[in-house]
Write a protein that binds this DNA or RNA. Structure first.
Lengths: 226, 226
DNA sequence: CTACGACTTGCACAGTGTTCAAGAAAGGAC
DNA sequence: GTCCTTTCTTGAACACTGTGCAAGTCGTAG
């Protein structure tokens, strides 16, 4: 072998690091090669293609989220923890949600999560396909919630790279958005009270939505039981 | 002026058509130019950049979704209709959700929708920031729900373009997913019953989740009223 | 020592978004 | 009519992307 041989794990780790630092569109094979101290094309022997590499990186980060033990907490706190940890994981890796829209991302890491989520909702009292739909509902909400921030992140990173007028372009963009929103009565009112009250923390919005979804699931359970 | 002058509306329409037909990664400026009968670079005079073009196309399709009249239906059916129409719109234009993860997409079209959604949730009884969070919750769910299908669509389109072994690669991919899922007890059980019962229609899953979210919102309303 | 298989490298190609100087066509001013 | 300006289009470039390919390098088994 040559002096040092690349391993798939090394490559995937470097890819995750680069994706976290530069975003999805900041990842390119030459930069990855430079980070690994190898030629860009050396990666291809191990992972086959860029899409495959992203799939591997994407599945890797699923293992970051801990699985709550159903023997010690009830289903609702378990569901809350799983969803919240998923949410912070998606916040840490905004590129995941972007990749989710373009590639089929299903590997052992996601399977591990999905299986446990299913277990939680079965423990709640859902049976058969209902458990699947219940799990899908909260998962879908968490995923959708990460979509907006991912876009903001992507934009900020792209502008941050672009030298001087980054902040100006950013301000232009939001100013334009406000100008549009101000033409609609309710949106304008929301903007005003948000500006006055320093705005609701965006994480509050996540918890509100999550608890609402769980409330809805409990309502369905209560309706099924006499 | 030259014989025929391009208009922004023409360009945006052609872009939407191309995006619908070829997907987000199928859109490129030379193809767009060919469709318009112009040079690829002629577009730049009108829209500035590809990102801007996508933003314009994205905002355009928001106008496809009708706004339910609160004077004739109660808030819950209004919310259901708005969410369902948003869902079918996102199904018709799967590239929108993908773009949502990479670009800040906020224009008059989305503002029109957001404003009405806010109105619906204010009519439900939510006040101030609560209405905002309630609207965001159901919007977020619908958005997240469109993310999986978008990926499947994107993959299918990419493979469909690739000649012969498209179906084979698709089957390989799902087979691998099943193989992984089968290693987890609950996922395996779900696969088996799904195969036996022809699977729950995916649109059932959307309605289940949507009604669950609305149930959760109603629970919150009931808890606030004495 | 030789041969093989595991890896790596540099080169090249096709395709991408975008810039830029140069042009073409219309509409007015005189 | 001529001339100028403004609006729009064009084709040729440039830098960058993912990736295929032939050639290479190296450890190791025989």
């Amino acid at each position: 072998m040559p002096r040092t041989t690349l391993t798939s794990a090394q490559i995937v780790d470097a890819a995750v690091g680069l994706l976290d630092a530069e975003g999805l569109e900041g990842l390119n094979m030459r930069a990855l090669g430079k980070q690994l101290g190898s030629a860009a094309t050396a990666v291809y022997w191990h992972v086959g293609s860029k899409e495959n590499l992203i799939a591997l990186a994407a599945d890797q980060v699923w293992h970051e989220i801990p699985l709550p033990d159903l023997a010690v907490v009830d289903w609702r706190t378990a569901a809350t923890r799983l969803a919240t940890d998923l949410h912070t994981m998606l916040t840490r890796h905004p590129w995941l949600v972007q990749a989710f829209g373009s590639l089929p991302l299903f590997g052992p890491g996601k399977a591990r999560h999905d299986d446990h989520s299913l277990a939680i909702h079965e423990a709640a009292g859902f049976t058969g396909g209902q458990a699947d739909q219940a799990a899908a509902t909260v998962f879908t909400f968490v995923l959708g919630n990460a979509l907006g921030p991912a876009a903001a992140d992507s934009l900020a990173r792209r502008l941050g790279r672009a030298g001087d007028d980054a902040a100006e372009a950013m301000r232009d963009s939001t100013a334009k958005a406000h100008e549009i929103a101000a033409r609609f009565p309710r949106l304008r009112a929301r903007l005003e009270t948000a500006a006055a009250g320093h705005g609701a923390a965006p994480d509050n919005s996540f918890q509100f939505g999550l608890q609402t979804v769980l409330d809805g699931l409990e309502a369905r359970l209560a309706a099924a039981r006499p």
